[in-house]
Amino acid sequence: MGEPLIEFVDIHKAFDQNVVLRGVNLAIPQGLVTTIIGRSGIGKSVLLKHVVGLLTPDSGEIRFHGRDLRRMSRSERRELKGKVSYMFQNNALFDSMTVFENIALPLEERTRMSKRDIRERVMRKIEQLELRDNENRYPAQLSGGMRKRVAFARALIMEPEIVLFDEPTTGLDPVRRQAVNDMIAHYQERFGYTAMIVSHDIPEVFEISQRVAMLDGGQILFEGTPAQILASTDPAVREFVYAGKNGSKRSHEKDNR
């Protein structure tokens, strides 16, 4: 498996009185798809947001190639940020910009590419993600599945090394869900990025993941391959994996809300 690309070391995070993460330890291997599962509201998105610096841990370290994020210089951190893309749960598309402008924005702001090169690259991405003839429409004019694809196109346009997906399939029908999962896997194979997915699609998402981690009670309860989690004898893991996300019987102690 080699050296992990991202390491979470004893991450603690609380919002006022609400303690969300209580010592998360997790390693994300390079070039693989790692999926984080766990009940709704347990802090999966919080964990993901730490990777891009949208949140900072109260204590603990986040390491990239063994280097602590906080010890990096400003330019190193910027360089790292350039390699990471984040796909938001609600897409976070710029709603007063067209599809084309949304996808082109990172290129326009962050590179010195000419207008023509930008156009070429964006149009190629639009083709690949089957968004043709929609480039001049606004996000509000698109279907949910198309918006997801636009968000995906925007996340991939800078050819990132790490892509973080925050519940990429929420709100889609089963066919579309499968399509998005396939898309993630397909492009991961093609471009070789490291992916971290927060997902509820059990067991579908296991098909595209090489690693699975389960977050519960603010800690990593399980970490391993999809086959290992399916064979796990831990009652909490079994209940979640086999009964779906509404772990109704165990809501006594760990409810964070």
Binding site: V52, K81, F94, P106, E109
Partner: peptide, 17 residues
């Protein structure tokens, strides 16, 4: 304000803009 609540500002931030 709308860009803030719909996470568009966070999106800019993650794109290093």
């Amino acid at each position: 304000g709308i860009m803030r609540i719909s996470e568009q500002i966070d999106a800019l931030d993650t794109m290093d803009i």
